[in-house]
Design a binder for these strands. Structure first.
Lengths: 211, 211, 211, 211
DNA sequence: CATGAATGAGCATTCATTCAT
DNA sequence: TATGAATGAATGCTCATTCAT
C-alpha cells in the first residue's frame, strides 16, 4: 500500500496482462485467479500485486490491452471499406479475428462481472465508447447525405450493434456453433446489394472527426 | 431413495429457486454462493443440497423458472399485437418487465459462466430455443406473404435479435443507463409507420404451428 | 430422546444391521454414513435413529451381528478338527469365509476407530473375547497333557493369533493380494506333520469348559 | 512454478508433518482434519495446501516420516543383536518406542483407510516393504545354515510378523492394556533359551545384502 | 413403523492478498 | 525486481441428528 502499483508500462507488465487475457479467454473470469494467471504466464502470483493494485485492476488492464490492440486492427482495415459489400466482408473477417484474439470474451466476462461490482461498470463503459464511436462513424459515412439520414439515429444503432456483437459472441461460446453467426453474415451479404441503392454510392472517408 | 435430489416440485423448492433468482439478479452469479442464496431466502444453506444436486443445478433451475414465467407473460401478450406499432410498444413493455424480473440477468450470467463450464452450455442453449422460436414466429406473422419474405431469413434474424436482446441487457447493467435502450425503442417506434407498408397489413395470428 | 431406541430384535433392525455391514465392508467406516447405509438398504436414513441411538450404536451392532454369525460357523466346524492337519485346513477355509463375510473388515474398521473414540474400545474388547477364548480352547485341546504344556501360555498366544489374524486381513485389503496369506497357510500345512509328534495325538473335544 | 505443492523439504514442512503425526496418533485419521492438524501445529490450515497437494498427501508423508525415523532407530540397534535373547529384548524395547512414537498408529490408521481409498494402498504397501525385508533379513541371520532353514519360509513369516505387529498395536489401543503385549514378550523371553539350540549359535551380521 | 424435511456444524480446499527478503 | 511463504476468509458440499407427521 506504501508503493503505488499500477505501473503504466514495461515488458513484465505486458507479460502479466497477456497471461491474464489468455487465462480469461480460456477459463473465464471465474477461473482467472491470481494463481491461474501466474501459472499461465510462468511467474509468481505475487508479481501481479507489484504491478496492479488488485486482480480487478489487472482485469481492466487486460480489457484495455485487447481493446487497444483490436482497435488498431480495425482502424488499419477501415480504409479498405468503400462499399457496403466491403463492409460486410471486412466486418466478418474482423469478427473472426476478434473471437480468435479473445477480445470479446474478455469484454463479455468483464461486462458480466460488472453486475456484482458496479464500481468497474463506469470504466468498462469508457472502454467501450471508442467502439461505439467507430461504429457510428462508419455508419455515418454510408448514411450522410442520403435520404435515410433524417430517419435513423446512427448513435442509437451503433449502441445496438455493439450490444448485438457482444450477445452474438456470448451465444457462440455456449455451444461453439458458428452456424448462427455464419447464417447472419450470409444474410447481410445477400442484403448488401439490395440496400446499397439507398445509401451513399461512395462512402466518404472518415475518422473520428465529428462529435 | 431420497438420495439423488433435484426434487421436481414443492413450495420449499420454489422458495429456494426464488432466492437464487433474487441473489443472482442482485449480486451476480459470482456472488450467488450457497450461503448468499440461503441468506436471501432465510433458510439453511444445506437445504439447497437437499433439493438440488449442486449449485449449478440450482442455477439452471433458476433460469428454467424465470424463463417459464416470462414465456407465459409473453404468450399472454402476443394476441394483443396486431400491428408493427403494437409490436414495438408491447416489446418495450415486455423488455422492461424482463429487466425488472431479472430474467435476462440470470440468463446473461449463466451464458457468461458457460465459457468456463461448457457442460451447461448445451442445457442453456435448449432453454433459449423457445425464445428464438417465439421471435421467429412473430416475425413470420409480419413477413409471410410480403415481398420481403424471400429476401430475409427469419431464423437467422431471430437468433440475432435474441443475441441483441442479451447484449442490450448486459450493457444496461454496466451503468444502469436506460437512455441507450430508450433511444433504440424510440427509433423503432419512429420507424414502424415507415416500415409498415412493406409488411403484412394485418399479421396472421400464429402460435408454434409451423416448423 | 423420549423413546429409548436400540431395539433388541426385529426384521427391520436386521435389515439395517445387514445394510451397515455391507456398507462398512464396501466403503469402510468412513464411508458408512447414515445416508450411505440407508441407500444400501433401501430405507430412509432417519430409520436408523429409530432403532439405534447413534451411528456408533449401529456400528457396534454390526460387529455383534457378524461376530455372532461367524462364531456359529466356527463352532459348527470345530467338531471336524481331529488333527493339526484338520486345523490348518479348516482354519484356511474359515479365514476365506471371514473375508468374504466381511467380518474382519468390520472388526478392523471398528478397532481402528476406537483410537479416536475410546468409549467404544471396551465394548469391542468384550466382543473379541469369545474369539480369544475359542482360539485358546482349541490350542489347549492340542497341547493339554503334552510336554509343551508347561512351556507355552496358550492365553497369550491366543491373543497374539487374533492380533495376527486382524493384521493379515488389513494387509490383504491393501492390495487385494492373496499371495501373502496363501504362502503362510501353505507353510502351516507343511509344518503340521512336523509339529504333530510334539502335540496331542488325538485332541480332546472341548468347549468353553474351563476358565 | 510454485503450483503443484508437495515440497520435498524444509523446516515448515517438517512442522506440518510432525503435527500430522501427532494428530493422527491422538485423534485417529478420522479426527486428523486439516483444522485439527493446524491447531496441533499452531499454524494456519491453508499452509497445509501450500506444502501438500491434499490431506491424503500429508497423511502419506506422515507415514513416510515416522517410517524413516523408526527405520533408522531399528538399524542402529540391529548390531546389538547377537543372540535370540538379544533379539527378544531389543525387539521389546523397539516395540515400546514404536508405540510411543506413534509409528504403528499412523500405519494402522492409514492401512485401515486404504479400504475406502484403494489408490493409496499401493503406496502404503511400498512403504511397508523395507520392514518386511528387515524382518526377513534378521530371521535369515538366525536361520541360515541351520536344519530349520529348508523347513520354514522366512519371507512368508516376515509378512506374518509384520501383520502380527500391526494387529497387536491395534488391539493395544482398544483398551490401552499393555498386559497382552507383556505376556507375549514374556513368553518369547522364556522360549528363547529353549529355541536357541536349534538356531545359529552366533547369527551372522547382515544387512540387505541378499535378495 | 417409517418418512421427508430441515438444520448447525463440520469438512477439504481455494481464494485474494500481504510481507519479508 | 521478483519470489516463496503465509494467512484469514470464503468456497461448495456432506455430516449426524432431530422432528413433525
Amino acid at each position: 500500500m506504501a508503493d503505488p502499483p499500477d505501473r503504466a508500462t514495461g515488458p513484465t507488465r505486458d507479460r502479466i496482462v497477456t497471461a491474464a487475457v489468455e487465462t480469461i479467454k480460456t477459463h473465464g473470469l471465474a477461473g482467472a485467479s491470481a494463481r491461474a494467471i501466474a501459472k499461465t504466464g510462468g511467474f509468481n502470483q505475487a508479481l501481479i500485486y507489484y504491478y496492479f493494485p488488485s486482480l480487478t485492476g489487472l482485469y481492466l488492464a487486460a480489457l484495455e490491452h485487447t481493446s487497444a490492440a483490436r482497435m488498431n486492427a480495425y482502424l488499419a482495415r477501415m480504409t479498405d471499406i468503400r462499399s457496403l459489400d466491403d463492409l460486410v466482408r471486412v466486418g466478418g473477417e474482423l469478427f473472426d479475428e476478434d473471437v480468435a484474439a479473445g477480445h470479446i470474451t474478455v469484454l463479455a466476462e468483464l461486462v458480466s462481472s460488472a453486475l456484482a461490482q458496479p464500481e468497474i461498470g463506469a470504466r468498462i463503459t469508457e472502454l467501450m465508447e471508442p467502439w461505439v464511436r467507430l461504429t457510428q462513424d462508419t455508419m455515418d459515412r454510408f448514411v450522410r447525405g442520403t435520404f435515410v439520414e433524417p430517419i435513423i439515429q446512427t448513435g442509437a444503432i451503433a449502441q445496438g450493434l455493439v450490444a448485438f456483437y457482444l450477445g452474438i459472441e456470448m451465444l457462440y461460446h455456449l455451444d461453439r456453433d458458428r452456424s448462427r453467426t455464419d447464417a447472419l453474415f450470409a444474410m447481410f451479404k445477400a442484403l448488401a446489394p439490395i440496400a446499397s441503392p439507398f445509401l451513399a454510392a461512395s462512402p466518404q472517408p472518415g475518422g473520428e472527426n465529428d462529435d
